[in-house]
Amino acid sequence: VFVDDHLLEKVLELNAKGEKRLIKTWSRRSTIVPEMVGHTIAVYNGKQHVPVYITENMVGHKLGEFAP
């Protein structure tokens, strides 16, 4: 499973602090992992960042699938 390192670091850091804030990313190719559930990730679609709230059903899919 591929997840960009910088994105995973941000998610794990927020989980350690117990925070839930918006994470901006250009990494549409990253796979959604269970650690991301409950976070809102702003995924770049080529024009703007689209906020995507991550749920359990999204695990295993790519971030780009949810930012048309």
Rank of each mutant, 00 (worst) to 15 (best):
E35F: 08
H39E: 01
F66V: 05
I54W: 00
Q48K: 13
W26N: 15
L7C: 02
E35L: 13
Y44G: 04
G46Q: 08
E9W: 07
K10R: 08
T31H: 15
V3R: 01
T31N: 13
G46N: 07
E19I: 13
V37N: 06
D4M: 00
L22Y: 06
E56S: 11
A42E: 07
D5P: 15
V11M: 03
Q48R: 11
T55K: 12
P34H: 10
L14S: 06
K62Y: 07
P34G: 10
R28I: 06
V59L: 10
G60L: 08
L7R: 00
H39Q: 03
F66P: 01
I54E: 00
K17S: 10
I41M: 07
P51W: 05
V3F: 03
I41G: 00
K10L: 15
T40A: 10
L8S: 03
K47T: 11
N45D: 14
A16P: 01
A16F: 07
L14M: 12
I54H: 00
T31W: 08
M58I: 11
H39T: 02
E65F: 11
G64Y: 12
M36P: 00
I54D: 00
V1S: 15
G38P: 00
H49E: 04
E19F: 04
I23Y: 01
I23E: 02
T25M: 01
H39M: 03
I32E: 00
H39G: 01
K17Y: 08
E35M: 10
L63E: 00
P34S: 10
E56L: 14
E19G: 05
K17A: 09
E19P: 03
V33H: 04
T55V: 12
K47W: 09
R29V: 13
V43D: 00
K17W: 06
I54R: 00
D5V: 15
V11P: 01
R21Y: 09
L14Q: 12
E56M: 13
D4P: 03
N15Y: 01
G38E: 08
Q48E: 14
G60H: 10
T55Y: 12
V37T: 12
I32L: 05
F2R: 05
L12W: 07
T40H: 08
I41T: 01
K24P: 09
W26H: 14
T31C: 15
A16M: 10
E35D: 09
R21I: 12
L8Q: 03
L22F: 06
G46M: 09
T55P: 01
V50H: 12
G64W: 14
L63Y: 01
K24M: 10
K17E: 08
V3C: 11
A67G: 07
V50W: 10
Q48M: 15
V59H: 02
V52S: 03
F66W: 10
E9S: 15
I41W: 00
V43F: 02
Q48A: 13
G64S: 06
M58C: 06
A67Y: 03
Y53W: 11
P68S: 08
V43E: 00
V59G: 02
I32M: 03
E65I: 08
K47S: 12
A67E: 03
F2C: 15
H6F: 15
T40G: 05
V50C: 14
N45G: 06
E19V: 13
D5K: 15
N45M: 06
H6G: 13
P68M: 08
I23G: 01
M58Y: 10
E13T: 06
W26S: 13
R28A: 05
V52K: 03
M36I: 02
H6D: 15
G18N: 14
L8T: 02
V50Y: 08
V11K: 01
V43P: 06
L14I: 04
F2N: 08
T25Q: 02
V50K: 12
M36K: 00
L63P: 00
K24C: 15
T31R: 09
P51Q: 09
V3W: 05
N15E: 04
H49G: 07
L8G: 01
G60N: 15
T25N: 02
K17H: 07
F2G: 09
H49C: 07
N57G: 10
V1F: 05
S30D: 02
A67K: 02
F66G: 02
V3M: 02
T25C: 03
G46I: 04
H49Y: 15
A67D: 04
L8A: 03
A42N: 04
K17F: 06
K24Q: 08
E35W: 03
Y53H: 13
L63W: 00
L63M: 07
G18A: 08
Y53A: 10
P51N: 12
L22A: 09
K24V: 13
Y44C: 14
L7N: 01
G18F: 06
V11Q: 01
L8W: 14
K20M: 07
V59T: 12
K17Q: 08
T55Q: 14
A42M: 06
V11Y: 01
V33Y: 04
P34M: 15
R28H: 06
